[in-house]
Computed example of a mutant assay.
Amino acid sequence: MPQNKQIHLDNRPTGEAELSNFKLVVGETPALADDQVLVRHHYLSLDPYMRGRMNDSKSYAASQPLGQTFQGGTVGEVVESRHPKFAVGDKVVGFGGWQEYGVVDANQPGVLRKVDTTHVPLSHYLGAVGMPGVTAWYGLVKIIAPKAGETLVVTAASGAVGSAFGALAKARGCRVVGIAGGPDKCKYVTDELGFDACIDYRQHPDVKSMSAALKEACPDGIDGYFENVGGYILDAVLLRLNAFARIALCGMIAGYDGQPLPIQNPTLLLINRVKLEGFIVSEHMEVWPEALKELGTLVATGKLRPRESIAEGIEKAPEAFLGLLKGKNFGKQLVKLV
């Protein structure tokens, strides 16, 4: 059995996460038991929610245990199998964590899924046609529930969730406005993803400036908002919401280092009779087949062209992850292992 490099969470951050919180460990891969398969991971997924799991505090997901492989999504190839439903060479998506190889009990429901890479690249099953894409789908379809002609806004618009949200919303006849960091990302959002407008938050670093930019980009107000960030951007959006607007609350990356994120004027939620719903996509597995089918079609037909930022080698995972938290990635952040 091959040697296996893993990244463990060695200690918990105080404030900002740092490279010293992680540790590279090399170990032996155990021999397979009956019904197990050995997967060689080709790509690791890096996602903002992982920052919250580094803390030992109440959150929507259990804390990442210390001294164990850092958890996360993976895609790869079966290289050995003792399970009748998986053969050597099968391409699979799972939750193998930050390691080069994973031993999986394939009898457990949902832990490993075969995927077709004929029209959709393997890496996209961690992004547009994976958890981030389904996250966008659920927030849009089940919470915002848009009507054609409505105006929708999404933060982190050039990322894995935001780009999928834009394609899904445009397919439903909506006006879609993104918020992203930097002119290159904003150009990609409008020119390649087909958004109607994109606001560079680096040019609008406070509530007053961001609110003015939203007024210009959304002259008819905002009917639906997909929130990934929180902080002053949420305050600015609340000033521009129409009556009966809907907010799908997916993430609060501005507060992942532990500081509270107060809302300046929560009375606006009442004044505009706003529906605000937080959600965790893993709690809604019943929608995944429908969502993945639509997302796969959008990618295969070129209507969704997601970008990827790729770090090479398991050793680069912590650095790439910390960069993601500061917006250094462009599109879905992955670590390539093969």
Rank of each mutant, 00 (worst) to 15 (best):
P2S: 11
K5T: 09
K5G: 07
H8I: 01
H8V: 08
E16K: 13
A17E: 01
F22A: 04
A31R: 14
A33Q: 14
D34W: 03
D34H: 12
R40V: 07
H42V: 12
H42A: 13
D56W: 08
K58G: 14
A62I: 10
Q64Y: 10
P65A: 11
F70I: 15
F70W: 08
G72S: 07
G73A: 13
G73V: 03
V75G: 04
G76Q: 05
G76F: 01
V78Y: 06
H83L: 13
K85P: 09
F86V: 00
G89I: 14
D90A: 06
K91M: 15
K91C: 13
V92S: 05
F95V: 10
G97V: 09
E100H: 05
V103F: 06
L112Y: 01
R113M: 15
R113G: 14
V115Y: 07
V115Q: 05
V115C: 12
T117W: 03
T118N: 15
V120D: 06
P121W: 02
P121G: 09
L122A: 05
L126I: 12
T135Q: 01
W137K: 03
V141F: 02
V141G: 00
E150A: 02
L152K: 00
V154M: 00
S158P: 06
G162K: 02
S163N: 03
G166K: 00
A167I: 03
K170A: 03
K170Y: 02
V176N: 02
I179L: 12
K185M: 08
C186T: 11
Y188H: 14
D191S: 13
L193K: 00
G194Q: 00
D196M: 02
A197E: 02
C198W: 03
D200A: 08
Y201P: 02
Q203Y: 08
H204M: 09
A213Q: 05
L214F: 08
K215Y: 00
K215N: 11
E216V: 10
A217K: 04
G221E: 06
D223W: 10
Y225F: 15
Y225K: 10
Y225Q: 09
F226K: 01
N228S: 11
V229Q: 00
Y232P: 02
D235C: 08
R240D: 06
L241Y: 08
N242D: 11
A243N: 12
R246P: 06
C250E: 09
M252Y: 01
Y256R: 07
D257N: 15
G258K: 05
G258L: 09
Q259V: 13
I263D: 03
N265H: 15
I271V: 13
V274G: 01
K275T: 15
L276H: 07
G278M: 08
F279G: 10
V281L: 10
H284S: 11
W288E: 05
P289R: 08
E290M: 04
L292F: 06
K293A: 14
K293F: 11
T297V: 14
L298E: 04
L298F: 06
A300L: 02
T301D: 13
G302F: 02
L304M: 11
S309I: 08
G313V: 10
K316E: 07
P318F: 05
E319A: 14
A320Y: 03
L324M: 15
L324H: 03
L325M: 14
G327E: 05
F330V: 01
V335W: 00
K336D: 03
K336V: 04
L337H: 04
